[in-house]
Design a protein around this nucleic acid. Structure first.
Lengths: 249, 249
DNA sequence: AAAAAAAATGCACAAACACGCAAAAAAACG
DNA sequence: CGTTTTTTTGCGTGTTTGTGCATTTTTTTT
């Protein structure tokens, strides 16, 4: 058995059970414990594992590119993501906006889903790049460091050439009369073109932000097909949207 | 038995059982182990297999293989980055290719530098997004998960509209006669357009890869202005490049 | 504090490797 | 066809890599 084979096997094993013991490995691979120790040492120097006495542990070093602590309402957003992920089917072409809710959604897409996802968010692209069968297409442009998304008129044009089955749009502003709104003008233009490129538009919004209005208009409410929130769809707060035939999830 | 026959057989065998041993192959094909080694070396230079001590493994198309390979020579790459960072001045428009050397470079750009950087590499964009005064422009496209860069013809066009002062290009293949070469065709086209968009082209290459040739040509050596390596510029290995008036750093 | 387990250290040795060279084979050429 | 050139191959040399073992040091357990 070659050294690299052992390395791969050790890493696979680690991924599966989060820890390995030198003793077990040396038994199962029929090499001396010394060799296993050397293997672990080498893998550690490559930052692939976390070596400890007697074995090694899985190293969780997903580079979180922006501060997750600063995100509000994480629990609510996770609930929304769990509901929204059911809308994703294999074969779809999907557009995702750059919201933290979409980041949660990206984390929980099942491995067997095979789809194409367009995004302009750095953290979402990083997250999706770990997925085995999602094709990721990053919409480039000038990077807004605060939000970790690309902006700029240059990115609107490429979006016109996309035709997507479904668009997942995170928002802090949705209102029956004013429709979808956004504090940042550039982002409002990008969201607008994303929606126009999509057959079906899903807005994800925590319940506390429903019926709130921001400065710049994205699209009227008639352009939206569905709203996903963390609360029960039959709540009274949705009555206005239901009257307009929106699907509430 | 002809060389190409063996090559094909080796690749088939690899696909089937994920590993081959030089010893076995030399027995079964009745050639010396040296010949098998040469075969494997050639296949590796074409990026078709992953050569290891004692044989070869199937080239993995997973993210991990990128991690393991790129971590190699990290000390050399840091030295190169330290030399290269001196070329960066405030006010410049810079293009960075998606190499691990450029990632090291991105990490050490002084905070007081104020510049615009174009890149198509996800990790480099993430790194630069933490810099206080660098404007980052991400060149979008289909994400190649293995190398964490965007590729695709769609990204070449936008590059034509850029005009940059300096281009930092990482490479594993530079040679006096064959110029800059690349194993991946799509990447070779992108690198080509990046170089054509730049006034001054700096190639960063660890000394062990100097005079190595990959499959696809990027540009002839005359398009290159400077080479940065981790070793002393007066080393004999650079004489051919010096004759062509390249700056060696 | 003593005993046991794991790790580091140094050494030996076989297997795999790189390099140069020359023979053999294949290709190119008139 | 013969001859020249290029490519491919095998072998001898010395070097590097991977592995196991004995010994000492460090860490963990009792």
């Amino acid at each position: 058995m070659l050294k690299q084979e052992r390395h791969k096997l050790i890493l696979d094993r680690l991924k599966l059970s989060k820890k390995v013991l030198s003793k077990n490995l040396s038994d199962e691979l029929s090499v001396s414990e010394d060799t296993i120790r050397r293997d672990l040492k080498e893998l550690e120097s490559k930052d692939l594992i976390y070596k400890v006495h007697g074995g090694a542990l899985l190293k969780e070093n997903r580079v979180r590119s922006y501060d997750e602590r600063s995100i509000a309402d994480v629990e609510e957003k996770k609930k929304i993501a769990i509901k929204a992920v059911k809308l994703i089917k294999s074969g779809q072409v999907i557009i995702m906006s750059g919201s933290s809710t979409n980041l949660e959604l990206a984390k929980i897409i099942p491995p067997e889903i095979n789809a194409t996802i367009y995004t302009y968010s750095l953290p979402i692209a990083v997250e999706l790049s770990h997925h085995p069968s999602i094709e990721v297409i990053f919409i480039g442009g000038k990077l807004n460091k605060e939000a970790q998304v690309t902006v700029g008129i240059d990115i609107v044009n490429p979006i016109y050439n996309i035709s997507a089955d479904i668009c997942f749009m995170g928002t802090d502003g949705i209102d029956v009369n004013r429709g979808l709104t956004e504090p940042n003008w550039e982002v409002s233009r990008i969201k607008n073109s994303m929606i126009r490129a999509s057959n079906y538009v899903v807005v994800m919004c925590v319940s506390s932000r429903i019926n709130s209005v921001k400065r710049h208009s994205v699209v009227p409410i008639t352009e939206i097909d569905a709203i996903v929130s963390e609360i029960d769809p039959s709540e009274a707060i949705f009555s206005g949207f239901r009257d307009l035939n929106l699907t509430i999830i």
